[in-house]
Design a protein around this nucleic acid. Structure first.
Lengths: 238, 238
DNA sequence: GCCCTCATGTTCACTATTCGAACATTAAGT
DNA sequence: ACTTAATGTTCGAATAGTGAACATGAGGGC
């Protein structure tokens, strides 16, 4: 038995746990709840194994079954997600909120997860046209202002370790020089983003950003506000 | 080997997966990142097992190690949490936002996870004094207006299956009659909550709620706005 | 410098745990 | 009533998990 991992004599991982985690990923990606057959097939395992995994996930409330017996992620995961970078969350929420209302734009905080940008906090001021970049949204670093800003905040060695090469991208080099990053249409069509990096020792590389529909005249003001927010977060950080 | 579960001849769960999930819970509850020793001890397992579990969790990015080698939950979990009740999320976000701005109070959506209330969505209008009830916050059903409202929306049979007894609490009975629930100081000291139930077939019992510092004169208006939001969500639900 | 201690990480033989074919059971078509 | 399909469980064979013991490295005191 070797589904490409978890075997071999070297130091491997745990097969059953791996499959359980993959089950969670599968359920998160599926837009509709899955049946056991779909789950077993998706994992490439026998149904009876899927059952054992399911029981365990259910027992810990990571998943729940709806009226029709279909399997879906449980609210427990939302609770778990609260444990992601709690100190950063606490330090950043007020500053991001203030930023959003001050500029009248959707503001957010992102962190770098190896080679992916993950949105942690989003605040939409009431007057802003809704630009959905909800917490949990994820995409490669190469796209979008926050990605460029975070890439720019890495040392060559860090970049190599995380992204596999020490050579910075065009946009990141620009951001390294100017201290902020810009993007157009890179993540959401028709939307522009501005971001500044935020590095806190012990926390992953992060960025503070806002998005808007058009290039504002007041780019300098925006960058200043972003940098102010970043500083405030760093200071409030316990 | 029987750490109280995962053994026996009947239909049991998976030991390794169970421990992996418990590791995630442990990391979520710890306010600071853990060392491997702490993790192994917390799980009551040998260090070498903790390593294998850790490797697997790391491989899937459920956890990450910081510069000091300490273990913390990864942003991946925030991404996963996006898969929790996505249809409900989509249907509810606009209505909750509108509600918050209309009433000038912190508004939120909760769901019932067996016997616990979990907050899924929170919106704070700019003028509201910050009342932190962030997504993922969790407490027993017995406390708070949303809990009472959701309890009231259950049938006796459902209540028995979920909570172990078919006998409704005082507050839930009141809510059953009036159609909304009230609470004071039950979750956050000095804060009052108003909630209405929201049942959507295929989704867990939910509630729409707002919180405020004092009992407003306009309770009727608030209840009407809440009911309006609940209806809107039900209609937008795909 | 040297020795001691504590924390991290890996190896390997033994066995508990997982695997999956086969068997039940219920539901929905035809 | 017969067929197809989906859900759930059982049990011996085979594999993946367990933890004592072995490495390695980083301080800390003397």
């Amino acid at each position: 038995m070797n589904t490409s991992a978890a075997s071999g004599s070297a130091t491997a991982g745990s097969q059953t746990l791996l499959r359980g985690l993959q089950a969670l990923e599968l359920l998160a990606e599926a837009e509709a709840p899955l049946t056991i057959n779909e789950l077993a097939e998706g994992l490439g395992i026998h149904r009876s194994n899927a059952y054992r995994i399911l029981r365990t996930l259910e027992q810990r409330r990571f998943v729940a079954r709806d009226d029709a017996g279909r399997i879906r992620l449980g609210p427990k995961l939302t609770a778990l997600a609260r444990g992601v970078a709690p100190a950063l969350h606490t330090a950043a929420t007020p500053a991001i909120t203030e930023l959003a209302y001050k500029l009248g734009m959707t503001a957010f905080l992102t962190v770098l997860d190896i080679d992916e940008v993950v949105t942690l906090i989003t605040v939409e001021p009431s007057n802003a046209t809704a630009i959905a970049r909800n917490p949990g949204v994820r995409h490669p670093v190469e796209r979008g202002a926050p990605g460029h800003a975070m890439e720019a905040s890495l040392s060559a060695a860090e970049r190599e370790r995380l992204l596999g090469s020490p050579e910075f991208g065009e946009a990141a080099l620009t951001a390294k020089r100017t201290g902020y990053a810009l993007s157009r249409h890179e993540v959401v069509e028709g939307v522009m983003g501005v971001a500044v990096p935020l590095r806190i020792p012990g926390e992953p590389p992060a960025a503070v950003a806002v998005v808007h529909f058009s290039l504002p005249e007041t780019l300098e003001e925006i960058v200043e506000a972003l940098q102010g927010a970043a500083q405030e977060i760093a200071q409030n950080y316990a």
